[in-house]
């Protein structure tokens, strides 16, 4: 399939497919990503959803989707995608469906399912070479239940279950790296605040078949503790501090689509969010701040 051209932001669609009126929080970074991606994917898409914030996208009798949607469970959305994809292929083969009746099968998952409970089903779907797109909105915690620590929560962040002392002791899991190790046909990281980059990547993913990852950082006003108006600004800072590298894996190679120069100090990003406030007050936690900066520096040193 030929991918549409997004030369500049002016090529981005100004009419949006996703219906308004969803129950997502005001300023939801995950909803922003889904909305931007849906404009590129088009309505001939079936979302197979894993339990998470986006479970509440469709609450009877209200759905924002113009195509199809199937809610499954927390652990097995990729298996649901397998069933839908296989059934569409069977019906195509039997002549019950024309090419125009086909759908792009997209798993929609948060980081709780994506990095944790659903990882086995995801890994197996990649093993089977399933033709699907995996869209993960990563808000770095179990957001729908009140932002408990998930395998995607970054080092030092406070959550509802790591509220004391220095926050989460562990490191954020590298889901992009796990996917790349499985040699998918495409993998990319995106953020809603970089819509042109996102549109190009979703279009590139859509033009290919096989297992494809779109991993989106989803700034979360409710869970991270910032004003809803700051969602996009915080997404920009995640990129400009180098905390959220924008990259893609195509034809066996990882390329960075944005190399922040100069890279802003990570504190520019961290200090915007209540979940990191304990690293600055009552006095700065120099050790954890240095650890976070060192981890980001090491990443970019390896890249450059």
């Amino acid at each position: 399939m030929k991918e549409p051209m997004y030369k500049s932001a002016r090529d981005l669609p100004s009419a949006h497919l996703l219906g308004a009126g969803t129950a997502m929080c005001a300023g939801c970074g995950g909803l922003e990503v889904v909305r931007e991606a849906y404009d590129v994917l088009g309505e001939n898409t079936v979302f197979v959803n894993a339990a998470g914030c986006m479970t509440l996208m469709s609450v009877y009798p209200f759905t924002p989707f113009r195509g199809s949607w199937l809610y499954t469970a927390m652990a097995s959305a990729p298996a649901g995608a397998q069933g839908v994809r296989d059934a569409l292929d069977i019906r195509r083969a039997k002549g019950e469906l024309e090419a125009g009746d086909d759908l792009e099968v997209v798993v929609l998952t948060g980081d709780g399912a994506g990095y944790g409970m659903g990882l086995s089903a995801t890994s197996a779907a990649i093993d089977r070479g399933l033709d699907f797109l995996y869209l993960c909105y990563d808000n770095e915690g179990y957001g729908n239940t009140g932002q408990q620590t998930s395998p995607a929560t970054p080092h030092g962040a406070r959550t509802a279950t790591d509220g004391a002392l220095a926050g989460v002791a562990g490191e954020k899991k590298d889901l992009f790296g796990i996917w790349v190790a499985n040699r998918p046909t495409y993998a990319a990281t995106v953020v809603g605040s970089e819509p042109l980059d996102l549109a190009r990547k979703v279009a590139r993913a859509k033009s290919r078949s096989g297992p494809r990852l779109i991993l989106a950082l989803a700034p979360c006003p409710t869970g991270w503790g910032f004003e809803p108006s700051e969602t996009v600004a915080i997404g920009h800072l995640a990129v400009r501090t180098g905390i959220w590298p924008l990259k893609e894996y195509v034809d066996g190679r990882v390329e960075h689509t944005r190399r922040p120069h100069p890279r802003l100090p990570v504190t520019d990003y961290l200090k915007t969010q209540a979940r990191f406030a304990h690293l600055f007050e009552p006095e700065p936690n120099e050790q954890v701040l240095a650890e976070i900066q060192a981890s980001v520096d090491a990443y970019w040193d390896a890249v450059e």
């Binding site: 197979v48 199937l70 499954t72 469970a73 652990a75 097995s76 959305a77 990729p78 298996a79 649901g80 995608a81 397998q82 069933g83 839908v84 296989d86 059934a87 569409l88 069977i90 019906r91 019950e96 086995s120 089903a121 890994s123 197996a124 093993d127 089977r128």
Partner: peptide, 22 residues
Amino acid sequence: MATLESEHSMITAAGAAAATGV
């Protein structure tokens, strides 16, 4: 035939395929 990685996934795929129309 599709070999899933667990019965949880197997039943998910079964239901999803039936929902799609086979």
